[in-house]
Amino acid sequence: MTLRIGVLAYQGGVYEHEYMLRRAFTELGVNGDVVLVKKPNQLREIDGVIIPGGESTTIGRLAERFGVLDLLRDLIKEGLPAFGTCAGAIMMAKKVRDSVVGEVQQPVLGVMDVEIVRNYYGRQRDSFEIDLSIPTLGEEPFRGVFIRAPAIVKLWNDAEPLAKLEGVTVLARQKNMLASTFHPELSGDTRLHKLFIEELVKK
């Protein structure tokens, strides 16, 4: 059986995730395929979904227009494994605000019990990289690339932080949902993609 993982493909780091997923499939010896999702019917044929980085306002508006947003929300609530990175994490959060303009009105999935602040660290000049300690992945640090990154400032119910940096959460999990505020697809390190496949999708 082929494992099919969708990447929401309207805009952003779509092909970077496809590349990492294909590498992860090979390393795990999994027979897998990647589906670039733009239309609702494609959501019915996937075993898991990655919501990539990009501009959350752009991705949200396009997903809403094609009816992908509502269906995806229902499917994730029903248990479809989902991994949101950066803008994808913003899309998944139940509460979103911006560090400069404050409360924002933008179409989101709103499925994960976390509060997220957009542009938390500031502008592009404040974008950075650092080696993160992610206990779930073992001793070896994980290179976190933060580009105009958001931060998870609050978690409730069974949403749990998997990694923290300077007092805020940068990687969180809740049941079938995984959210990172950094870009694992830029690190060359497939461990998070493998964790998503092994522990969320294959279960």
């Binding site: 493909a9 309207y10 805009q11 952003g12 780091g13 779509v14 092909y15 970077e16 980085g53 990009g54 501009e55 752009t58 950066c86 803008a87 592009q124 000049r125 404040d126 974008s127 950075f128 990289e129 650092i130 080696d131 640090p141 290179r143 690339v145 933060f146 580009i147 105009r148 870009h183 830029l186």
Partner: peptide
């Protein structure tokens, strides 16, 4: 080799920024 404090303006960050403009 190891980054224990945040490093700003690195190549990963400079070449990474436009990636999130793609398709837009």
């Amino acid at each position: 080799e190891r980054l224990s404090v945040p490093h700003k303006g690195t190549l990963r960050v400079k070449y990474g920024f436009p990636i999130y403009q793609k398709g837009g």
